[in-house]
Write a protein that binds this DNA or RNA. Structure first.
Length: 925
RNA sequence: GCGGAUGUGGUGAAAUUGGUAGACACGCUAGACUUAGGAUCUAGUGCCGUGAGGUGUGUGGGUUCGAGUCCCUCCAUCCGCACCA
C-alpha cells in the first residue's frame, strides 16, 4: 500500500478529536511554554494559503516543545467583532452574529484539516457575551483609574478624590491635560456634574471633546493606526478631522513605559523601531513667550533651546486657541479665511501639499523672553495643532521649514552660527558654535542646550520637557457589531454599570444603520431590548476592534472562569506568551494596545508581568501570482501576450484556476463570466493564448487566491505543512508557487517506503544493532534539527529531513531503533504521517507526542579523518583526506609532500602555510 | 527627508562563530524501466571555455593567509514614519 494520506489524515484528526489529545491542564510538574497565534477575524472568504503559514510554524514549535517535555499552551480563537459582518448585516438584515457563526464554522473546518494541536476547549470569541463581559469589566477598571506620576502606575480614582477632598489638585501628580488649580474647598463646592467633568480629565478611559478621524463613508471614527495616508484602513475611504465627544484611552500616560519596555522583549528591530517611531519621544524644553498687550503666554516646545536667540518669528497652528484673541483688526479677515481653508483640508491634503508655503500674519507680536525683541506671530498649517503645544518658535537659520517660510514672506533671518553660511539654506546639522547669542556665545550644540535650559528655568521662562508623538487612542465607534460600553448616563453624567449587571449585551435593533439624527445604531434599541438599562440612557457607542484583542491571550489561560477575567493562579502559571507569531501589520495597533492593557492590569495587581509577548515573530506575507488577459480597448477581443505589439489593451485579472503555466483555458474563460461568452481571441501562432502574470497580494478581487483546501485534497495536510515551511524563512514574504510542492510530497512517499512495504506492513527490524552510518545520519540530523528549531529556522529542518531520508534510503536502513527516533524529529511537521507510522511500528496508538525528543549523542559523529580542502591563496584546489590526530606541523608536512601540491606550487616556494586542524589548509604563494 | 529590512543560479533558497559558495528542492537536459504516470531510478545542470582553466554572492574600495559573512562608499527593491518644532 502506498502512502494514503487521505485515509491517514482523516483517521488521526478524528482520533485526536475523540481522545482530546491536545487538552492542556495546569496540573503539571512540567515547565510551561505558551505559543500563540494572532487569532483571525473570521471573514467570509475563509482561509487562503497565506493564513496557515504562521499557524503551521507555531504548531511545529508547539509540538516540538511538547516532545521536549514542556507543558504547552497552544490555543486558538476568533477576533469576531468587525466591519464585514456588520456591512453584510446592513445589506441583508441578517444579524451579524449569524454571519459570524457561519464563518467561524468554515474557519474551524479548514483549521481542523491542517492538523493543528490546539486545545479547542479553550477557544475564545471576542463577540461572545461570556468573553466581552470581561472586556467590559477591564474597561470599567480603566474608567476607575488614573495615572499617578509619582509611583508611575495606575491608581484608583477614589484615591484621587480623597486627595481632592483633602487638598485640591495642586499637589496631585497625575497625568492629565487639566491645568486649572482648585482647592479642597473649591472641590467640595462643585456639584456632581462639575466633579465628574474634572475626573474625566484624569480617568484612563475618559470622555472628551477631541479631534477625531471621522470617516463619513463608514459612518464612524477611527484610531490613528486605522488611518493610512488619510484613508480608512478598511475600504480606503476618505477621512476627515472632526471634533466629537468620544471615549478615549489615556495611553499617553504609558508612553515612557511602552518605550522602555521595548528593550526587555525579543522582537525584531524593525518592529521595535516602528513602535519607537509611533511613540515618538523627543527631549527638549518648553518656552513661554508673552504676547504684547495681553496677559496670555504662548507656550512652545523646542528640541533646540540653544537656538533661542535665532528666533525671528512665531508660528501658531491655525486651530490654536489664541488665534482669534490676538489677531489684530486689520488681519481678521485674512486669518479667518486661512483658518477656514485649513479646516476644510483633510489631513491627507495637508500632507500631500508639503511644498507650497502658506501662512498669514496675525498682526500680533510676541516678546522674546530673553532679548525682549518684538516678534511677529503668524499662523500656518505646517504647524500641527495636535503635536507639542501647537505653536513653534521659528528659527530660520537652523530649520529648513522656518527658513523657507521666512524667505517666502520676507521675514528677517538672524544667523547665530559662527562661520557658517546660510545664504542658500538653513544650517540643520547639529554642530557648529553659537554666536550673537548672549550667554550662549561660544558654546556647541550640546552645551548650548544644557545652558539654555538652566537659564530658562532660573528665570521662570521655560522648563525641560519631554514630548511624545503618541496620542490618546479614540475608543468609541459608531457601530453595532462591537462591545457595548458598561456605561449609562444619569443627567448626562456617565456612570459605570455595576459588575453584577455585566455583560451588557448587544440589544436587538431593527436596523444596523445610524439613526436619522446621526446617532449610532444602538440608539435604535428600545429600552427593554437591553438586558440591563439604567439612568436616562445607555451608551450608544461600541468599542473598537482592538478592545477584545488587547487581552485575549490572558483569557486562554482560564477561558471558562465565570468570576474573574483570569485567575491570578492561572496567569502566574502561564505567564508571558513565550512565542507569538503573526503579521507585521499590527505593529502600531494591536501590539501597542495589548502592551498598554497588560501594563495597566499589572499596575492593578491582576497579573504579575507587564509585557505580554516575550518573543515575537512576524511571518512574511504569502503573495499570489495573478494572471492577466489583455482586452483590446472598447472591444470584447482578447490579445495573447506575445501579440499585443503596442496595441491599446486593458489588462484584466483572470481567475488563476483558468490558467496553467500562463496558458489560458479559453473555453473555461468564456464560461467564467457571461460578458466573455462571445469573446474572441487573437492567439499566438501555435493557437495558444498566453497570459501575463504579476506577483500581488492575495485577494478575492484579483482572482489569485489559493485556498489550502484544494492542496490538501491533492497532497494532504502533512505535505502542505512541510511545503509551507520549506518555502523559505518564516519572516520573509514570498510569492506562492505550487511547483515545488511535488518535491515535498515525494519526500514523504520516499520516507514512507523506508517504513512500509507495498502492503503497508512495517519492514523495520529491531533484532540487529543499527549500522554506524545510520547512527551517524540520525545524530547529525538530531543535532541540526534541534539547533534549527531553537532558532526558528523552520525551512532548513525540512532540507535536513530530506537529506536524512536520502541517506537512509541509500544505506537501506532497516533499523527500527534509528527510524523510531527519526519519526520523532519529523513529527512536529507531519503529525498525521508520523502517528500512523508510529502505530505501524507497534507503539500504542496516539502516544507519539508523549515520547521524548531524541537526544543528540556526539560520539556517533566522531571522525578519525577529515577531507581537507587544500587552497592556494585562498582558492580551493583539491582535497586531501588526512587523519584528525595529526598536529599542525604534521599536516603541513603531509600536504607539502603531495604531488598535487607540487603541481599547484609551480615550482615556487610557499611564503606561508596556514593550517586550521579540522577545517582547512591554505598555502600562500 | 528619517528609520528599518533585503540584494546569492532559470526559480524557492542554504552557508549559525570569517575557513570547500549554491546544501535541499523546483525546473531543465539526457538516459533506463514500463499495459503511459503528476510514478520510479541513473547521470548532468552558476556563468564563460572543447579543454586545462578562468570567473562568480547588487556596485566600487578596504581589513585578512582567507570575506556572501567584518569596515567604508554608492545603487536598487520592499516596509514603516513623515511639515514632529
Amino acid at each position: 500500500m502506498e502512502y494514503n494520506f487521505r485515509e491517514i489524515e482523516s483517521k488521526w484528526i478524528s482520533f485526536w478529536k475523540e481522545k482530546k489529545s491536545y487538552k492542556v491542564s495546569e496540573e503539571s510538574t512540567k515547565e510551561k511554554y505558551y505559543v500563540l497565534d494572532m487569532f483571525p477575524y473570521p471573514s467570509g472568504a475563509g482561509l487562503h494559503v497565506g493564513h496557515p503559514l504562521g499557524y503551521i510554524a507555531s504548531d511545529v514549535i508547539a509540538r516540538y516543545k511538547k516532545l521536549s517535555g514542556f507543558n504547552v499552551l497552544h490555543p486558538m480563537g476568533y477576533d469576531s467583532f468587525g466591519l464585514p459582518a456588520e456591512q453584510y448585516a446592513i445589506q441583508t438584515g441578517q444579524h451579524p452574529a449569524i454571519t459570524t457563526e457561519e464563518n467561524i464554522k468554515r474557519y474551524r473546518g479548514q483549521l481542523d484539516q491542517l492538523g493543528f494541536c490546539y486545545d479547542w476547549d479553550r477557544e475564545v470569541r471576542t463577540s461572545s457575551p461570556e468573553y466581552y463581559r470581561w472586556t467590559q469589566w477591564i474597561f470599567k477598571q480603566l474608567f476607575d483609574c488614573y495615572y499617578d506620576k509619582a509611583t508611575n502606575s495606575a491608581k484608583r480614582i477614589s484615591k484621587l478624590i480623597q486627595k481632592f477632598e483633602f487638598s485640591g489638585n495642586a499637589e496631585v501628580c497625575a497625568v492629565s491635560d487639566f491645568e486649572q488649580i482648585f482647592s479642597a474647598k473649591d472641590w467640595s463646592s462643585y456639584n456632581e456634574k462639575q466633579k465628574e467633568t474634572i475626573l474625566q480629565e484624569y480617568r484612563l478611559a475618559y470622555l472628551a471633546e477631541s479631534w477625531v478621524n471621522w470617516c463619513p463613508e463608514l459612518g464612524t471614527v477611527l484610531a490613528n493606526d486605522e488611518v493610512i495616508n488619510g484613508k480608512s484602513e478598511r475600504g480606503g475611504y476618505p477621512v476627515l478631522q472632526k471634533k466629537m465627544r468620544q471615549w478615549s484611552m489615556r495611553i499617553k500616560a504609558y508612553s515612557e513605559r511602552l518605550l522602555q519596555g521595548l528593550d526587555s522583549i525579543d522582537w525584531t528591530d524593525s518592529l521595535r523601531e516602528q513602535q519607537k517611531n509611533w511613540i515618538g519621544k523627543s527631549v527638549g524644553c518648553s518656552v513661554n513667550f508673552s504676547i504684547e498687550g495681553s496677559v496670555s503666554k504662548i507656550e512652545v516646545f523646542t528640541t533646540r533651546p540653544d537656538t533661542i536667540f535665532g528666533v525671528s518669528f512665531m508660528v501658531l497652528a491655525p486651530e490654536h486657541p489664541f488665534v482669534s484673541e490676538i489677531t489684530t483688526k486689520e488681519n481678521i479677515a485674512a486669518v479667518k479665511d486661512y483658518q477656514e481653508t485649513a479646516s476644510k483640508k483633510s489631513e491627507r491634503d495637508r500632507q500631500s501639499d508639503v511644498k507650497s508655503i502658506t501662512g498669514v500674519n496675525t498682526g500680533a507680536f510676541a516678546i522674546h523672553p530673553l532679548s525682549g525683541e518684538k516678534i511677529e506671530i503668524w499662523i500656518a498649517d505646517y504647524v500641527l495643532a495636535s503635536y507639542g503645544t501647537g505653536a513653534v518658535m521659528a528659527v530660520p537659520c537652523g530649520d529648513q521649514r522656518d527658513y523657507d517660510f521666512a524667505k517666502h514672506f520676507n521675514i528677517g533671518i538672524k544667523n547665530i552660527f559662527k562661520d557658517i553660511e546660510i545664504v542658500e539654506c538653513a544650517h540643520t546639522e547639529k554642530n557648529g558654535i553659537l554666536t550673537a547669542s548672549d550667554f550662549l556665545d561660544g558654546l556647541n550644540v550640546r552645551e548650548g542646550i544644557e545652558k539654555a535650559i538652566i537659564v530658562l528655568e532660573e528665570r521662570g521662562i521655560g522648563n525641560a520637557k519631554i514630548n511624545y508623538r503618541l496620542r490618546d487612542a479614540v475608543f468609541s465607534r459608531q457601530r453595532y457589531w462591537g462591545e457595548p460600553f458598561p456605561i449609562y448616563y444619569d443627567k448626562d453624567i456617565p456612570k459605570a454599570v455595576a459588575d453584577e449587571h455585566l455583560p451588557i449585551e448587544l440589544p436587538k435593533v431593527n436596523s444596523y444603520l445610524p439613526t436619522k439624527d446621526g446617532e449610532p445604531p444602538l440608539a435604535r434599541a428600545e429600552k427593554n431590548a437591553w438586558n440591563h438599562f439604567e439612568g436616562d440612557r445607555m451608551e450608544f457607542n461600541t468599542m473598537p476592534g482592538w478592545a477584545g484583542s488587547s487581552w485575549y491571550f490572558l483569557r486562554y489561560m482560564d477561558p471558562k472562569n465565570a468570576n474573574e477575567f483570569v485567575s491570578k493562579e492561572r496567569s502566574d502559571y502561564w505567564g508571558q506568551v513565550d512565542l507569538y507569531i503573526g503579521g507585521a501589520e499590527h505593529a502600531t495597533g494591536h501590539l501597542l494596545y495589548a502592551r498598554f492593557w497588560t501594563k495597566f492590569l499589572f499596575d492593578q495587581g491582576y497579573i504579575s508581568f507587564d509585557e505580554p509577548f516575550k518573543k515575537l515573530i512576524n511571518q512574511g506575507m504569502i503573495l499570489g501570482k495573478s494572471s492577466f488577459v489583455y482586452r483590446l480597448q472598447d472591444t470584447n477581443t482578447f490579445v495573447s501576450k506575445g501579440k499585443i505589439e503596442g496595441r491599446p489593451v486593458q489588462a484584466i485579472h483572470a481567475d488563476i484556476s483558468l490558467v496553467d503555466n500562463n496558458l489560458l483555458d479559453i473555453v473555461g474563460f468564456k464560461n467564467w463570466r457571461k460578458e466573455y461568452s462571445d469573446a474572441t481571441f487573437i492567439c499566438e501562432d501555435d493557437g495558444s493564448y498566453i497570459c501575463g502574470d504579476e506577483v500581488e497580494k492575495m485577494s478575492k478581487s484579483k482572482y489569485n487566491v489559493q485556498t489550502p483546501d484544494e492542496l490538501i485534497e491533492k497532497y494532504g495536510a502533512d505535505t502542505l505543512r512541510l511545503y509551507e515551511m520549506f518555502l523559505g524563512p518564516i519572516e520573509q514574504s514570498k510569492p506562492w508557487d505550487t511547483k515545488g510542492i511535488s518535491g515535498v510530497h515525494n519526500f514523504l512517499r520516499k520516507c514512507w517506503r523506508l517504513y512500509c512495504d507495498t502492503e503497508g506492513k512495517c519492514i523495520l527490524d529491531s533484532t540487529n544493532k543499527p549500522h554506524k552510518d545510520a547512527l551517524k545520519t540520525l545524530h547529525k540530523t538530531i543535532k541540526k534539527v534541534k539547533e534549527d528549531l531553537d532558532r526558528y529556522s523552520l525551512n532548513t529542518c525540512v532540507s535536513t529531513f530530506m537529506i536524512a531520508v536520502n541517506e537512509f534510503t541509500e544505506q537501506k536502513c532497516k533499523s527500527s531503533e534509528v527510524m523510531q527516533q527519526f519519526l520523532l524529529l519529523l513529527a512536529p511537521y507531519a503529525p498525521h504521517f508520523c502517528e500512523e507510522l508510529w502505530e505501524k511500528m507497534g507503539y500504542k496508538s496516539g502516544t507519539l507526542f508523549t515520547a521524548d525528543f531524541p537526544v543528540f549523542e556526539p560520539s556517533h559523529l566522531v571522525e578519525d579523518s577529515f577531507d581537507y580542502p587544500i587552497s592556494f591563496n585562498g582558492k580551493m584546489r583539491f582535497k586531501a583526506k588526512l587523519s584528525l590526530s595529526l598536529s599542525k606541523e604534521e599536516i603541513q608536512a603531509e600536504v607539502e609532500g603531495l604531488d598535487l601540491t607540487q603541481k599547484w606550487l609551480e615550482g615556487k616556494m610557499p611564503k606561508k602555510v596556514i593550517v586550521v586542524p579540522g577545517k582547512i589548509v591554505n598555502i600562500v604563494i
